[in-house]
Design a protein around this nucleic acid. Structure first.
Lengths: 116, 116
DNA sequence: CCCTTACTGAACCAAAAGGTTATATAACTG
DNA sequence: CAGTTATATAACCTTTTGGTTCAGTAAGGG
């Protein structure tokens, strides 16, 4: 359902510049110029990154005089985490099952061909 | 420090096909043919995706007769989650601070120029 | 030894990503 | 209204990405 949204979020987070922007915005809203400051790329490049982030839903932008303050949205970040978390939990579940199996085998060595 | 590794992990997870492969592998190891089965793309395309996943550290591959079983590694998945989680926590901390501030303001309306 | 199964590699291609510079636009400032 | 500040758009370029097809290689099976 949210597959498309999730796709956009992961796409957006794939770029290190955009991740840095997200990390910065996690500390508080910032204008485009402020966000651009740490990087050695042009303003239009930053503008493009922000557009990608905006379309992915990771950020929203308002208007304040000439500036366009950027705001980090929590939901897409949550969606990304949820996806990874699910995979990780399945991975764990699988591991636990193996553990359980090994325990069962050890507990009843005569059954299930534990010979040797 | 792990910035490069993190970069590779997010890059790898940006593609929906690769995320589907990761999700599949979370349920257990699988061969290349098995992984390719749900998709309508060619085997070499799958092979390329697997190489991306392998170089990102998300999966490892062994050899079993002619097949190359793929195995999901947990660490890069953890690294990705950690990064997002950190951002999210900062986001929350910021919010909490605001809440605290508002509470403080409400508690002592005469101080700090709450005049309106 | 050949044949099939299971992949991988090489060469190629179209589209997208990320960057640039130069040119708008939008809002405040004098 | 002219000028400055803050940001966006347009046009363009290069590299990367994701896909293709057409061989190659590697390991059993007959």
């Amino acid at each position: 359902m949210t597959g498309d949204r999730l796709d956009a979020a992961f796409m957006a987070l794939a770029d290190p510049t955009r991740r840095a922007i997200v990390a910065r915005l996690a500390r508080g809203d910032a204008t485009v110029t402020e966000l651009a400051e740490p990087f050695s790329i042009s303003m239009p490049a930053i503008s493009k990154h922000l557009k990608v982030l905006e379309r992915s839903g990771l950020i929203t932008r308002s208007r304040q005089a000439q500036t366009r303050p950027c705001h980090l949205e929590r939901e897409p970040l949550d969606a990304a985490i949820d996806w990874i978390e699910t995979s990780r939990q399945l991975w764990n579940a699988r591991f636990d099952k193996l553990e359980a199996h090994l325990h069962a085998v050890q507990a009843t060595p005569s059954k299930k061909g534990t010979s040797r």
